[in-house]
Lab assay of single mutants.
Amino acid sequence: NQASVVANQLIPINTALTLVMMRAEVVTPMGIPAVDIPRLVSMQVNRAVPLGTTLMPDMVKGYA
């Protein structure tokens, strides 16, 4: 099973992602693959992402 990107903290809307905000976890359903974490750094979320939420492609501006 491939790990997905999960929020390590509450990420407010329009926040630029940093490594500290994300962790890799095997979850269902799968979200953004953990291998993409370096690519996500400095991209912004388009909604508030609660702690423990799996990041989906439509939550990150410019990802999809």
Rank of each mutant, 00 (worst) to 15 (best):
V26Q: 14
P57E: 10
L17F: 02
V5G: 02
S42E: 11
P50T: 13
V41Y: 05
V5Y: 00
N8L: 06
M56F: 05
M56T: 11
P33N: 14
L19N: 08
P50K: 12
M21W: 02
I37F: 04
G62W: 08
G62A: 13
V6K: 05
P29G: 06
P29I: 10
L19W: 05
A48C: 14
T53E: 08
M59I: 10
D58Y: 05
D36S: 06
T18V: 12
M43A: 12
V60R: 00
E25Y: 03
I13N: 09
T28C: 15
N46L: 14
V26N: 08
P57V: 09
I32T: 02
M22N: 00
Y63Q: 07
P33R: 03
A48S: 09
I32Q: 00
A34C: 09
R23G: 14
P29A: 14
D36A: 08
N46S: 14
A24L: 12
N14T: 05
I11H: 00
I11W: 02
M30E: 15
V41E: 10
P33L: 07
P50N: 14
V45P: 03
V45W: 01
L51K: 10
R39Y: 14
V27C: 07
Q44R: 06
E25F: 03
M59F: 12
V27D: 02
A3F: 06
R39T: 13
N14S: 07
V49M: 07
R39A: 10
L40R: 00
V27H: 04
A34V: 06
G62V: 04
T18M: 08
V27G: 03
N46A: 08
L17T: 00
V26S: 15
N46F: 08
M30P: 11
P29E: 15
L19R: 05
G52L: 05
M22W: 02
A34N: 06
I37V: 11
D36E: 11
R39K: 13
V5F: 01
A64C: 14
I37P: 00
P57Y: 12
V27I: 07
Q2R: 03
L19K: 06
N8Y: 05
N8C: 05
V60T: 02
R39C: 10
V26E: 15
M30G: 06
N8G: 15
L40V: 08
P33G: 14
T18K: 06
L17N: 00
P12F: 07
S42Y: 10
M56I: 13
